[in-house]
């Protein structure tokens, strides 16, 4: 299956899609040699992030193996992750 997601480091809770992705599309990426697939829950623009782990409001979101912010609301794997549900601080 075509690889259309970038998983950068162990611990990441999001992947970056390399194509314009629509709800229902399969996103496939490689994690430590294994191919993993998720179904996009909603549209994810090219090079935007998609959750691969469920997050509760206030929980840490990771990319590059590091904290990039906290969930501003609950979200599920396959959901688009951007300014509507991710911020530097919980009060953002």
């Amino acid at each position: 299956m075509k690889i259309n997601g970038i998983y950068s480091k162990p611990g990441d809770t999001v992947v970056t899609v390399t194509d314009q992705t629509h709800a229902g599309d399969v996103v496939s990426y490689t994690s430590e040699g294994q191919q993993v697939t998720f179904v996009a829950v909603n549209d994810v623009p090219k090079f935007h992030k998609m959750a691969i782990e469920p997050k509760k409001k206030g929980e840490t979101v990771k990319k590059y193996g590091e904290r990039i912010g906290v969930a501003l609301k609950d979200f599920a794997p396959g959901e688009h992750v951007h300014t509507h549900n991710l911020g530097s601080r919980e009060e953002d």
């Binding site: 970056t16 623009p45 090219k46 090079f47 935007h48 992030k49 990319k63 590059y64 590091e66 904290r67 990039i68 912010g69 992750v81 951007h82 300014t83 991710l86 911020g87 530097s88």
Partner: peptide
């Protein structure tokens, strides 16, 4: 697609 300053910095 960059959301936070932390993400940009990393």
């Amino acid at each position: 697609g960059i959301t936070t300053l932390e993400e940009k910095s990393l």
